[in-house]
Design a protein around this nucleic acid. Structure first.
Lengths: 220, 220
DNA sequence: GTCTATAATTAGATAGAC
DNA sequence: GTCTATCTAATTATAGAC
């Protein structure tokens, strides 16, 4: 997204092709994703990326202006890659579900994301570099976090029977407890000495939402 | 905690003392806290720390073995500094409160933490460096996160009237939605285009807990 | 412990041949 | 676009004088 799309010379490198044909640029991007997501921006050297991509360093600079541009490009790449946008039809289907099934489906979507090691590394790096690259943090929030938030917030807004005074805040409690679980259990390693199953968080969350539903039924 | 306590030579530097007397080691630590928390581990150079501390680089190496040891020392310093342990009396007092007031007090404690720029930077750096320094991530989790978690989890365990099947998971929902708010609103900059007041999160959380309480009263 | 000076290595980036 | 070779500046770390 930062640089032009990769419709360049597939032919040349396809000849050597040990695996599937990959342009040099593609090699660089793949290597950069691996090294940057592992070591962060400052922790990554262009030498290391070149070695990992099996390419000489000057080649990188013929595709990317400098280190910052390469970093921004790969963060954008990984951020967009994982986010297949939902169709309006699917969203409408979600909104038609009862609260417990809605939470269930929302968690399934999150589970798929969080099981990817690449995604966890992305979250870690985006947070870690958020001071030096605030635009990338913003991109991440808009592309990833807000997607889930608006989905949940939209649901809570429509379902008046829950009588939630602040749908966005409630949506945040759902999505936030998911993200927080990922950070403290997986990224910070909490699971090693105080394990908490993700499913148990979901169940506890449903307990609370169900109570809210039951309360409002009674008050009728 | 990593290095020996600082009960060394206060006298020598107290003579020059423009401000309050500070040993060279203290100067180094203060400067290192500032620079490391701003730029992360790899993003920080020993030159920069030395300049910030108004000390020559070799002096740093006479107090700390290498860059890693200095980094670990300052992360431990900042982590412990903010965490004044609660007395058993205070904890007992907390446990005697009704749910809404307990949540209120819990949030106040979190607010004090989160309003400190240093604390936010600590969280960002600990997450960002969690791959290279997993022991520091572990220290942070044990010292900071688990403290709040166990406080809330202990409360939920004692208050049977809430009929929570999994107190730890519910405690996670409370603390997790706080931490997640800090990350996506403050650290990732979400407040700039999708503001969400922290107090609104607390209110929404109380809504859910209150509903749980009301439900269980009705079922009697 | 603190400084001067410097070693040894590596960083990001480029010029020029092909 | 890709490589060889290289430049400059910055990096971590230390040896030795005081």
């Amino acid at each position: 997204m930062a640089t032009n799309p990769d419709s360049s010379n597939e032919k040349a490198s396809a000849i050597i092709g040990s695996g599937r044909p990959r342009s040099k640029k593609e090699q660089i991007v793949q290597a950069a994703i691996k090294v940057f997501l592992e070591n962060g921006y400052a922790g990554t050297s262009m030498n290391r990326v070149a070695a990992e991509a099996d390419v000489i360093k000057a080649t990188i600079y013929s595709h990317f202006k400098d280190k910052e541009e390469l970093f921004a490009a790969i963060i954008e790449e990984v951020t967009f890659k994982r986010m297949a946008a939902d169709t309006p039809e699917f969203e409408q289907y979600l909104h038609s579900l009862p609260p417990d099934e809605f939470v269930k489906l929302l968690t399934q979507k999150f589970k798929i994301l969080s099981q990817s090691e690449e995604y966890r590394a992305l979250l870690r790096v985006v947070i870690g570099e958020s001071e030096r690259f605030p635009e990338l943090a913003t991109l991440y929030v808009k592309t990833v976090i807000l997607k889930g938030m608006e989905l949940a917030s939209g649901y809570f807004s429509k379902h008046k029977e829950l009588k939630l005074n602040n749908p966005l805040a409630t949506a945040h409690i759902c999505c936030g407890s998911f993200v927080a679980w990922l950070i403290w259990q997986e990224i910070l390693g909490g699971k090693n000495f105080k394990p908490l199953e993700f499913d148990d968080v979901v169940i506890a969350l449903q307990e609370l939402v169900d109570a809210k539903l039951a309360q409002d039924k009674d008050s009728k």
